[in-house]
Amino acid sequence: MSLRRLSILAAGLTLAWLGVAAADSRDALLNVSYDPTRELYVDFNKTFAKHWQSETGNTLNVRQSHGGSGKQARSVIDGLDADVVTLALGYDIDAIADAGLLPKNWQSRLPYNSSPYTSTIVFLVRKGNPKAIKDWGDLVKPAVQVITPNPKTSGGARWNYLAAWAYALQANGGDEAKAKDFITRLFKNVPVLDSGARGATVTFTQRELGDVLLAWENEAYLSLQEFGADKFEIVVPSLSILAEPPVAVVDKVVDRKGTRKVAEAYLQFLYTREGQEIAAKNYYRPRLPELATQYAGRFADVKLVTIEQFGGWRAAQEKHFSDGGVFDQIFQGR
């Protein structure tokens, strides 16, 4: 066999295998999600697959991809074939909509702003709370080390940041300069910036770095569950933010792959009693009123600001997290 024939053969094989790789997407969903939902969707996918099989007789294989919310949105824009996205905040799905993969009114297509569950930001501290951290104000004390992921890449970190900002505004009678100073001092106490919420949790719990972790409520409870309540405790601050992690079907992808029906059923199932139970069990706050009441004891009662008070995600993103925004400014002084 000549080299030439060999290379033709190789090229042929490559093409054949490209074809196979491209065709292999039937009866499967890809859910591109953010960091702390790993455990939630492991449970949910199992239940939904069973439900789907009893409804249609088809077996279903749900694939998961997790990472910092912004990063995940970027991958979808770049061509990661997500049938559904379940991200940490609306802005990241807006970015996907801007790229033309789904309509700009995506958020009105499902109930409750397309957020089947909500969450908030709490503090996770070491057992006994040795640094006596009670509220946001304690985070800027000199000897306190705060662990939070990077707001540029992590959705949870952006909620963390905005909750701190809201607190500082409230404590300083709405003075923005003072709020900025507060945030600057807070981030001076941050020794590590992981790219996603899960990395930050690992840094705090496993690497034993820092005195307090700013975490998703569900992530904090999960840490207690994983590592034992004898190691950490949860502190609920006086004020926090209502985090609404949204979900959406990616129209361009499902229409190409022919998976619209199952993708839509998948998201709608999140709003059913069964879906809401799973969310609540994984420490996400359910939306359905009767379940919200049923699980009320599970979640702390805390005063919550909403993203609307920041003028919505686009405004908040532009002001705080874009290049040259407030977050960049506070790092330039260092």
Binding site: A21, S75, G79, D81
Partner: peptide, 10 residues
Amino acid sequence: HGIQIIFAVP
């Protein structure tokens, strides 16, 4: 043309 390069094996 239905060919996926990145985020896939190729």
